[in-house]
Every structure is written in structure tokens, then in C-alpha cells.
Nucleic acid binder design. Structure first.
Length: 886
RNA sequence: GGGCGGUUAGCUCAGCAGGUUUAGAGCGUCUGCCUUACAAGCAGAAGGUCGGGGGUUCGAAUCCCUCACCGCCCACCA
């Protein structure tokens, strides 16, 4: 049946997408030039991990960034969308490590550092470009010439330069602190890389015997294995129960260490027995207390979280095994008072999911306060604006609470720390002697720090490092001057703290400017039940699959339309049908006038006022829409803008305009009609282009033969070109109301679309001026409602046996001898009447309220008065019609 | 323990700088159509006291308070 014919005519994205992407790229349309003389519009792409594959989150954020980039390009800006890849330290190291293990059964230690890094580079070169290749499928219009990698040569220089500068400014220091140690990845982590997970655990109450006297004090702990490292017991200084034991010594069970009882206000007397064991080597609070009281710091776990020599009989046991054994022994020795079930918050590595061990370790830190303060100020001044606004508060909260940033990582893959140590007798770096902070090796007998930097320590430079900073030549300098600060950053809230905040700090520190004016925070992609998409759940939707199935434009359409202000978005595969259907509509609409179109010919346009009613109406609709769409875009309401274009295209252009300009069977379409149809279609195509670039570029060239310089992608964004209150619109909107009402009646009485009807429109005396324009609509009525005979007049007498409908100050009569069901008519009219009467009551309620009339703006009151008059008139007409039936 | 978001039609969600909204869209449902651009379509219809309660206001889905669920983020309490 039609399916087959329909399928042949259906839009097939696969046929054209590749072609146009190559066309754009080869013509250099994505390239941005700092010398163009235009105003810049720059977006920095959040650089995806080199190891990554494209997921829906990227697809969503890229679509938004591309829409903004294409739009600004069309609006005459020098639009730069700066692409890049992130070396992603731990993630990449892990991936390559697994790869090496599985392909040749070797660990990275088998290879050694140098060879392993060579492997990583090989891997990056082979697979690293994949994600950016996938991004091309979505249509990303990035300036690929500028593509950067956070480990490329220039970038390395930038990272080293800022390290040295921060160090010289006293903002980077080396220190021994308890850091978040991941025993699986064998590295320190920043606080942001650690999640706290609530788990069912236990609270063990343990007796610590006094060293001199008999008796004991009971302490409570959730981590009995840390007993091995206890160096004090603390009580609250005001706790009367314990005044007498402060200063006494107790014996730490199992290790028999004699430790003092100290007083510290940190202890909460009401918790457990009110006494706290102190393990400065394995607990951040205890560490602080230890420092206050000058306590010994005993480390009992090694970097694998295995009990070390300080653990006596437990040495060699894993921390959790040790815990069990220790509890057993305590119980046997009658030192275990009791055990309670207890909810504990366990720190876990975001990446490896391993339980983090606070471990005393020498690391490099960035002093955050001096960097945070200018950033907070900048946001407070409004130099950076968050959309939606609420994220600003999240930003402030984090910036004020933030602690110093541990930036050294015990990994192989990453930026080496530019610090140099003297070599000791064994040829190893001597961390105890003076070190030198420098980009180049400062001289003989010096060796570079083994550690690398946190990945984010390079990403936070992205906005200026990719534009040429530190800049050794004139070209790069002018790029930085011209393109920085950028206009808008589009990202999810998941990296607000990791990246967005830090970029603001870095740019202000280095350039004195904010990195971007606006921050558009998108929601996160979820599955149809609102769950995160994850590999383990297997609920992810592959954007590439969706693009192959529905087309890139369809995917972009759906992602844009579904993405409201910062709200998480739920996706399911069938949802993309909506975009596909729209593409198909756009595709087929072209044929209506395209059949008559000669794409080599110029079609001169008639002056606006000489156009037909529907043409004037459509032009005005377009102008109204452009205005509204621009307003939406300026507020980053892309979903609303696209919905408006959708409804303009489908609801107005296709359903009314095209339907009315279609010539009867076999007849040609006049040139003037073709010309305007094509012109309007072009405007719609342009409005759609930022959102759906492929199909629009294809059709743009079908409408008219054009050279590359006239491509849709570089065409000028549509302007409002006329008056927004054309009188034709009033007539046309009446016409639409009447048509709808006739169709309604036809449907109610099951009148076949093939059957013609006689239509009578009765106008109120006040609307005489509509009489002849509506009569002139006869061909329109014939086409859209199969009206064979039309009567329009003022207060026309109601024909016998007709269906009736009241719209405003008009009555619509459809004489239908033998078909009209009087009961049905009565029911309909009564229902209408009831509705109007209750509405009128509401309106009159307002108008009789003197406070409303006094206080509401005049325009609002006048509007209500108008409603009252209209409704009152409708009610009278409905009553009259009901009487006529009775 | 703090902070934030959500609760609107059967489903997924818009709308929330109070008044042209007598609350919209897509999907789904129902009715009728293969009307030569499109059945991935056309026409029509049904369906919501905008989570509960209170308040501010001439006027509240929209602002304030409160309660109830659902979700997220942050936090050093053994």
C-alpha cells in the first residue's frame, strides 16, 4: 500500500549527513579567525577523556554547544568552538594497564615506567581520536584545526609554567598530611575524588586498662584495626566523670602501648562512653588532635592497606582481615565491652570504588583560599553568570568550604611534577634535601619528582592554554587576546567543582579575566525510569546507534527539546522517533512547492501587501516567531525556541499555509506563489539549521542552486522584516476558527470528507467589515473544509435543520437536512452555554470587585471588560440557537 | 546534620521576571480518513480542582510558610 510509496519518499539521513559534514569542514566553515574583524563567540568544549566513547551526556551537551555555535555564526559572530581531549590520568592508565595485561599478560611494573608510557601513547594514537570522530557524527562544528590534547607539547609547557608560577607565589607547597589514599590505584586522591558511602557497620566498645591502677576506660570505635596505631585516649575537658583520669596512662590493647589520656573539646561526652581513642596516623580528626597535643603518629597500614610491622602479631594481614582478628582477640581477652550495629560513612574512591585509607604521606598541595577569593568576587559581581541561577549558590558554598588541593598523584601517566631532587648515595631522589622547582633539569645530579599531577591540574587551564598561553609567538598571543574570555561554558553539574570552579580560579590568576561570561549547566541524562545510565545496569543508549537509526538531526532535535533549564532528562530510544518524524515532515513539505520550483531561477517577490491573505498571515507569523525565538535563545531556552519553530513549521506553515497554496490537481503553481513559498521555507530552514544542520543544509541547496559561500551554515540569521500587526491576521484567524468549527461538525456527524457542505456564517453587526474578506475566503473554505457554497452576512437568518456553532461574535451554520440530530445539537449547545456562563461568572466576579478595578492596571481591567462583552454576546447567541432548535 | 531539586493530562515533560493561559506539547487512547507533500501522515475528540494545607495579592500552576512523599549534593563526629 502506501507504506511502500511512503518509504520511498521518506527522508533518509544516512544518504546526506556524511556529505554535508565533509562539505562544511572542507570549506573551512568551522574555522575561526582572530583577524576577521567580527565579534568573537567562543565555547570551550569540555575535553572528553581520550579513553572515552561517546555517550548520551556528550550528545546532549554537544548539541547545545553546537546549536549556540552555529547560531552565533549565522548571527555574524566569529564563532569558535574549541575542541580537545583530556589525558585523564588514572582512567587512561587503568585502561591501558588492562589492555597490556590482556594482550600480553604483563603488568605495568613488568614493562617499567618508560615502556608503559610508550604503550599509553600508542594507545592514545590508535584509539584516542575515536570519541572526536563520533562527535563529528552529531554534527559538531568545532574548529578541528585547533584540536588540543592536555598532554601535547604546548600544553605540557603551560602546566609546568603555572606550577612554577604558583610555587613562586607561595601557592604551591609540599607537606606531609593525611591524604586520601587509594590502595587499589596506589595513589593519593583529592577530596573531590572521594565519595562517602553509608554502610551498615558496627560500633565496638573496647576497654583500655589503666597502666597503673586497676580498672579501665571504655572507648568506642568503628574501625578496631586502628587500635594498633592509637597514641592517646581523649575525653572532654569538662566531663566530670573523667576529670581524675586526665593525665593518667592507659594500655592500648593488643599492642600494649602505654598512651596518655588527654583532654580535648572535640570529644563529645554524650557519645558512647564519652572517651575517644586517638589514631593520628589513620584518621583526619585524630590527626588534628594529635598535632594539637604533640602525640606520636604511628602508621600501621602500608600503601596496600596491609598491616605493617607496627601491627605486631597482625602484621601482614589485610585491614579488614585484621579487623576481624582484632575483634576476636579483644573478645577473648575480655576487653570487648559490647558491639552495636551502626551506620557508618565509608570513604570510597570514585574511580576504583575501593575504600579510601587516610594515610600519612608527603604530597604537593595548592593553597586554595587566595585563588578562591577573587573567583568568588567575580561571580558575586556578575562577571560570571550561572544558568540556572541556583548553581551560583552551590558554587559559593563549595568555594568557601574548600580545603587545599592535593595535586600529586602516584601514577605514571600524566604531567610530571617540575620539581628536582638531588640524588642520594643509592642513586635515588633524596626527598629530604633541598629541591628545585623548575621546568628544565637544573643540573647534574638532579632527578625529577616521580609523581604526576592531578588531571584537573591541567584541565583547569583549558580556556587559555588552548588559546596560546603562555604564548611565545605573535599569532597565539592575538588568539588569547581576541578569544579570551569566552562567552559561555556548557557543562553538567557533575563537574562544577572539579572543573568549572577551578577554571574560574585559574583564568583569574593567570589572565586576570574570568574564563567565560555565562555558565550553562545542563541536567544529566537518565534512563526512562530516572536512573543513571551505566554499564553495570546496561541501560545506556548509544547515541551512535540512535544516529544510525533515526539520523543525527532527529537525535539533536529530541535532545534539545527535552532539555529544559538544568532539569535532568529521561531518555528512551523510541523518543527519537519524534525527531525523525519532524525531519520527514520537513523533507516532504519541500515537495509541495518544490515540484514547481526551478532551483536555477530567481523568483522575484511581490510586495507584501499584494500577497494573498494566507501569504500575508504566514509572513507575519514568521516575523512574530523570529522575535519570540530570539528572546528564548538569549535566555538559553533552546527547548522553547525549538518548540516554537516546530509549531511554526508544522502547525502554521504546513497545516495552513501549504494546504492553501497547493494548486488543484494537475494545475501549476504560479511563480509568485512558488517564490514566496520557497522564501518562507528558506527562512524556516535557517531557523532550524543550528538545531538540525544536516537536513537543512541539504534542502537549502535544493531550494536554490548555491555555491559554498551561500551555504546555509554561513547564511544570515533571519531578521524581522515587517509589521507584526497586519490586519490580514485578524481575518485569517477568524477563518481558521470557522474552519475548525466546520471540521468539528463534520466529524460529529460523520460527514465523509468527500461530501461537500453549505456553510453559512452570521456576523454580529459590529463585524460588518469582515463580511467581504471572509467571502473572499471561499476558495480557502472549499479547500480546507469542502465547502461548496458559502454565505456570509450580518445577522443572517438561521437555516432550518442545521448544525450550529458559536464562536465569539459569529455563528456558524451548517445546513444538514436529514443528518442533524436535534438532541445532539441541544446537548452540544447546552454544554457550550454552561461553560460560557461559568466563565462569565468568574469574569464578572472580578469586575464587580472594586479593589480589582481600582488596583489592577488599566489594560488588564479593559481586557476583562472585553472578555465580559464577548462572553455575554456568545451566551446570547447560544441561547438563541437553543431556542431555534426547541 | 545542612543545602538543593522534583511533585501539572494515562506516560514523559514544558510553562513558574504573578494578569491575552478559559493551563500547553509529544506520545498514548477514542472516532473518521490511503483527501496524489508526508500513514513517520490528515481531521476531530476525550482527558488535569497544576502533591496536601495555610498565607501574601485586586488576581497564584507561578511569590511566601508548612506538611507529605521521590531524588540529588555537601558534611570530620568516634
Amino acid at each position: 500500500m502506501n507504506n511502500q510509496a511512503g518509504a520511498a519518499r521518506a527522508y533518509n539521513p544516512a544518504e546526506i549527513e556524511g556529505k554535508w559534514y565533509a562539505y562544511w569542514e572542507s570549506n573551512g566553515f568551522f574555522e575561526a579567525d582572530s583577524e576577521s574583524g567580527k565579534a568573537p563567540h567562543v565555547i570551550m568544549m569540555p575535553p572528553p577523556n581520550v579513553t572515552g566513547a561517546l555517550h548520551m551526556g556528550h550528545a546532549l551537551q554537544d548539541t547545545i554547544q553546537d546549536v549556540l555555535t552555529r547560531l552565533r555564526r549565522m548571527q555574524g559572530f566569529e564563532a569558535l568552538w574549541m575542541p580537545g581531549k583530556d589525558h585523564a590520568g588514572i582512567a587512561t592508565q587503568n585502561v591501558v594497564e588492562r589492555h597490556v595485561k590482556s594482550t600480553r599478560g604483563e603488568s605495568r611494573h613488568d614493562l617499567g615506567r618508560e615502556d608503559f608510557i610508550a604503550e599509553v601513547w600508542k594507545w592514545v594514537e590508535e584509539y584516542g581520536g575515536r570519541i572526536l570522530q563520533q562527535k563529528r557524527c552529531i554534527g559538531d562544528s568545532c574548529d578541528w584545526r585547533r584540536e588540543r590534547f592536555t598532554m601535547d607539547e604546548k600544553y605540557v609547557k603551560a602546566v609546568q609554567a603555572i606550577f612554577v608560577r604558583l610555587y613562586e607565589d607561595g601557592l604551591i607547597y609540599r607537606g606531609s598530611y593525611l591524604v586520601n589514599w587509594c590502595p587499589v590505584d596506589q595513589t593519593a586522591l583529592s577530596d573531590e575524588e572521594v565519595d562517602n558511602v553509608e554502610q551498615e557497620g558496627h560500633l565496638w566498645h573496647v576497654r583500655y586498662p589503666f597502666a597503673q591502677d586497676s580498672g579501665y576506660v571504655t572507648v568506642s570505635t568503628t574501625r578496631p584495626e586502628t587500635i594498633l596505631g592509637d597514641t592517646a585516649v581523649a575525653v572532654h575537658p569538662d566531663d566530670e566523670r573523667y576529670q581524675h583520669i586526665i593525665g593518667q596512662n592507659v594500655v592500648v590493647p593488643l599492642v600494649e602501648r602505654i598512651v596518655p589520656v588527654i583532654a580535648d573539646t572535640y570529644v563529645r561526652p554524650e557519645f558512647g562512653a564519652g572517651a575517644l581513642k586517638i589514631t593520628p596516623g589513620h584518621d583526619k580528626n585524630d590527626f588534628e588532635i594529635g598535632r594539637r597535643h604533640g602525640l606520636d603518629m604511628v602508621t600501621v597500614l602500608d600503601t596496600n592497606a596491609i598491616v605493617n610491622g607496627n601491627g605486631g602479631q597482625f602484621a601482614g594481614l589485610d585491614r579488614f582481615e585484621a579487623r576481624e582478628r582484632i575483634v576476636d582477640q579483644l573478645a577473648q581477652s575480655d576487653l570487648l565491652d559490647k558491639v552495636e550495629p551502626y551506620k557508618v560513612s565509608v570513604p570510597v574512591s570514585q574511580r576504583s570504588k575501593a575504600v579510601i585509607e587516610p594515610l600519612l604521606s608527603r604530597q604537593w598541595f595548592v593553597r586554595m583560599k587566595p585563588l578562591a577569593e577573587p573567583a568568588i568576587e567575580a561571580v558575586r559581581r556578575g562577571d560570571v553568570r550561572f544558568y540556572p541561577r541556583r548553581w551560583q549558590n552551590e558554587f559559593f558554598r563549595w568555594m568557601t568550604e574548600m580545603r587545599d588541593w592535593c595535586i600529586s598523584r602516584q601514577l605514571w601517566w600524566g604531567h610530571r611534577i617540575p620539581v628536582w631532587y638531588h640524588i642520594d648515595d643509592e642513586g635515588k631522589p633524596d626527598a629530604e634535601r633541598d629541591y628545585i622547582v623548575a621546568v628544565e633539569c637544573p643540573g647534574e645530579g638532579m632527578v625529577q619528582d616521580e609523581d604526576v599531577l592531578d588531571t584537573w591540574f591541567s584541565s583547569w587551564l583549558f580556556p587559555f592554554a588552548t588559546l596560546g598561553w603562555p604564548g611565545e609567538d605573535a599569532t597565539t598571543r592575538s588568539d588569547l587576546d581576541f578569544f579570551h574570555p569566552t562567552q559561555v561554558l556548557v557543562s553538567g553539574y557533575d563537574i562544577l567543582f572539579f572543573w568549572i570552579s577551578r577554571m574560574i580560579m585559574a583564568s583569574l590568576y593567570v589572565t586576570g579575566e574570568v574564563p567565560f561570561r555565562d555558565v550553562l549547566i545542563t541536567g544529566m541524562v537518565k534512563d526512562r525510569y530516572g536512573r543513571w545510565m551505566s554499564k553495570s545496569l546496561g541501560n545506556g543508549i548509544d547515541p551512535i546507534d540512535m544516529i544510525q537509526k533515526y539520523g543525527a538531526d532527529a537525535v539533536r532535535y529530541q535532545l534539545t527539546v527535552v532539555c529544559a533549564q538544568g532539569q535532568d532528562v529521561r531518555l528512551h530510544p523510541e523518543g527519537f522517533e519524534r525527531g525523525r518524524n519532524f525531519c520527514n515532515k520537513i523533507w516532504n513539505a519541500f515537495n509541495v512547492f518544490g515540484r514547481f520550483l526551478d532551483s536555477n531561477k530567481e523568483y522575484p517577490l511581490r510586495p507584501f501587501t499584494e500577497g494573498s491573505l494566507v501569504e500575508r498571515w504566514m509572513v507575519t507569523r514568521l516575523n512574530e516567531a523570529i522575535e519570540a525565538i530570539n528572546a528564548d535563545i538569549d535566555r538559553y531556552r533552546l527547548n522553547e525556541a525549538l518548540t516554537k519553530i516546530h509549531s511554526l513549521f508544522w502547525g502554521d506553515y504546513c497545516d495552513w499555509y501549504l494546504e492553501l497554496i497547493k494548486p488543484p490537481h494537475g494545475e501549476p503553481m504560479p511563480d509568485a506563489t512558488v517564490g514566496l513559498a520557497a522564501k518562507l521555507y528558506e527562512r524556516l530552514i535557517q531557523l532550524l539549521h543550528p538545531f538540525m544542520p544536516f537536513i537543512t543544509e541539504e534542502l537549502w541547496h535544493r531550494v536554490k542552486r548555491r555555491g559554498p559561500q551561500e551555504a546555509c551554515i554561513v547564511s544570515v540569521w533571519p531578521q524581522v522584516t515587517g509589521d507584526l500587526d497586519d490586519p490580514a491576521c485578524e481575518v485569517f484567524s477568524r477563518f481558521q476558527d470557522i474552519v475548525t468549527s466546520v471540521r468539528n461538525i463534520r466529524s460529529r456527524y460523520r460527514i465523509s470528507p468527500a461530501r461537500s457542505v453549505h456553510l453559512v456564517v452570521s456576523l454580529a453587526p459590529g463585524s460588518v467589515q469582515l463580511e467581504s474578506p471572509l467571502l473572499a475566503c471561499e476558495p480557502y473554505f472549499r479547500r480546507l473544509a469542502r465547502v461548496a457554497m458559502l454565505d456570509v452576512g450580518v445577522q443572517v437568518e438561521r437555516p432550518k435543520a442545521c448544525a450550529t456553532s458559536v464562536i465569539g461574535d459569529m455563528e456558524v451554520y451548517l445546513p444538514l437536512a436529514g443528518l442533524v440530530d436535534l438532541e445532539e445539537e441541544r446537548r452540544r449547545l447546552t454544554q457550550d452555554l454552561d461553560r460560557k456562563v461559568s466563565f462569565l461568572k468568574r469574569v464578572q466576579g472580578k469586575l464587580t470587585n472594586t479593589r480589582f478595578v481600582e488596583r489592577a492596571p488599566v489594560a488588564v481591567v479593559e481586557l476583562e471588560r472585553q472578555k465580559e462583552r464577548d462572553t455575554d454576546s456568545e451566551i446570547r447567541r447560544l441561547r438563541a440557537s437553543l431556542e431555534a432548535i426547541a
